[in-house]
Design a protein around this nucleic acid. Sequence first.
DNA 1: TTGAAAGCGCTAACAC
DNA 2: GTGTTAGCGCTTTCAA
Lengths: 364, 364
Amino acid sequence: MSVDRPPVENRSGRGPHASILDVAALADVSPSTVSRSLRGLPNVAPQTRQRVLEAARELSYVVSPSASGLASGQTRSIGVVVPFVTRWFFANAVAGACDVLAEAGYDVLLYHLGSADARDRFFDRMPLARRVDAVVTLTVPLTDDHTLGLRALGMPLVTVGAQMAGVTCVRIDDVTAAQSAVNHLVHQGHESIAMLASLGEDPELGFSTSRDRREGYRRAMRTAGLEPRDDLLMAGSHGIDGGAEAMAQMLSGDILPTALFAEYDEIAIGALRTLRRAGIPVPGQISVVGVDDHEMASVVDLTTVAQQVHELGAVAARLLLDTLAGGLQEPVDVVLPTRLMVRGSTGPPPSRQASRRPDPGAGG
Amino acid sequence: MSVDRPPVENRSGRGPHASILDVAALADVSPSTVSRSLRGLPNVAPQTRQRVLEAARELSYVVSPSASGLASGQTRSIGVVVPFVTRWFFANAVAGACDVLAEAGYDVLLYHLGSADARDRFFDRMPLARRVDAVVTLTVPLTDDHTLGLRALGMPLVTVGAQMAGVTCVRIDDVTAAQSAVNHLVHQGHESIAMLASLGEDPELGFSTSRDRREGYRRAMRTAGLEPRDDLLMAGSHGIDGGAEAMAQMLSGDILPTALFAEYDEIAIGALRTLRRAGIPVPGQISVVGVDDHEMASVVDLTTVAQQVHELGAVAARLLLDTLAGGLQEPVDVVLPTRLMVRGSTGPPPSRQASRRPDPGAGG
DNA sequence: TTGAAAGCGCTAACAC
DNA sequence: GTGTTAGCGCTTTCAA
């Protein structure tokens, strides 16, 4: 690529970049002084520092992270591991983490483990090993091996959403969140409430978030004296399409509940799409509630349990920075609050017993 | 952090990681041979390579990217620069790029320039300088200075969506995409068609995507013998909220068009939310069309011009890899196809002249 | 096909 | 407050 470069003078002339020696020469000090000045260490005379900064700017000097990392053992970058950046929750949490980390001068290495392939490659190669100073994982479904692999890196680790013994975690109380969603339905008079939940390829592996929300559903049902239905589990697709398919499957079954609790909003939204296409009125015949407060929830008028997703990522990042700075020594478990947002997708059931599907021909 | 580490033997015992010397010792060869073997270079006897690979595995050896980068001048990582990971388009394009790059063994440095702060910090510090081998920018609004700054890095650069002279670009034809959306409305008989478009803080700066879609709107209108309305520009918020606010603003105005062309789906979706809340029937009174085929478009039944966003990112990544491999020498301009998806948000106008708002009290 | 030696560009420990 | 001296852990000539 033949690209114009800014004119560069006083250069030792080896590579395309000025080196610390060039800056040192221009500022008429030693390389160590340049290093100290640029990193804002004490023990540098103000005027010296000034000269160095000017020289550096003049030469468009940027430290080589490789060299600096090699010498110091620090990379000034953080690994962020995420299963699907395309899902609203993850995108927002990543954004929260990135914003905090960038402000602190850290770079973010993004590891996107969407496919099983990508996940295997990742854990096989462990590209994090000497590349980052710390890691934040966003509720990646992990086997025990994976977990051990991450911990064996011996670097600070914070998870968003996934509780693991001895690891700092930022999350919501998924059990309680699910309970409050289901309780809302119960209070409206629903007795036949089903749950739409995701199911990873490997049941051992899944998201703890998913497990906890199912637990919350069961508890709320039992507390209300209701029988939890077998969760409807979506094996294949995630997100909206998964929810839509699961709903379609449920419609093809015999007994339709009067209310649905979806593990997260995208599932709920997918279900709403299927319901709309099937001409089933919401909440007239079925009420739907989710978890997240996805930005689309207000658009489709979905009742949901809101969580502060950007903040989850941001808090995780801050905890990591604290740990790196030596402040935080022991693992902590931070639980952010949730809030029920009542919207138009929930209402009383059609009647106390109208829990069967309308006969064919009954209209709809 | 006191963490169990896998048992490690035959170690020089300095750091937490095995070094190339440890591997060399265990395999009974020189470090150079280890290096060659691990990188799959020729000129290594198959059995030697075998021994080395076993030794490396035994010691859980992972090369130090810093050291390797310093010595070779290559970082094996790519910078991905994106304004908002949380917006659907960007999340998907990032995912596309990540997937391709990860498969090729590259790491991804994510730079999230959502806020003006973050952008300034980024261009001020140019953290990419020696950190990455190449850069893909996802339609980041750039000033000329910024553009020059990126090009001055002297490394391969591919943009998604943003055309710049002499830079490889992967995009759709935004003018044509906009025209096909507007033509669809024209063919349905609409004569009063407005556009909802975004407007960056700095008009000089904006997305070329935005400019081109406005241009397409104007051309389609003129071709149809219609007067383009002054675009309704959203100055503040982006995405859904921006669209919702712009729509509200339009509702407070005097003359309501019979159809709306939104620069991208999130704007359209925000507008739909406002319209629903205002009780204005879609497409009965107003038709709405967007661009993207956002995953929510099918949920809210939005007519839109679909683009393959994941593929945009993936193609960009592949072009970058080609360039790094020495295959691609000259900048290219790749244009991916779009397709009009007709859904339920568009229909004929209420009547040939019913373009005024209903009188107060007329119901709705 | 392999090994020895010389850096890559910086930081850190120590001297002054 | 500043300079000197060694590396950090690799890759890369070059020589064998």
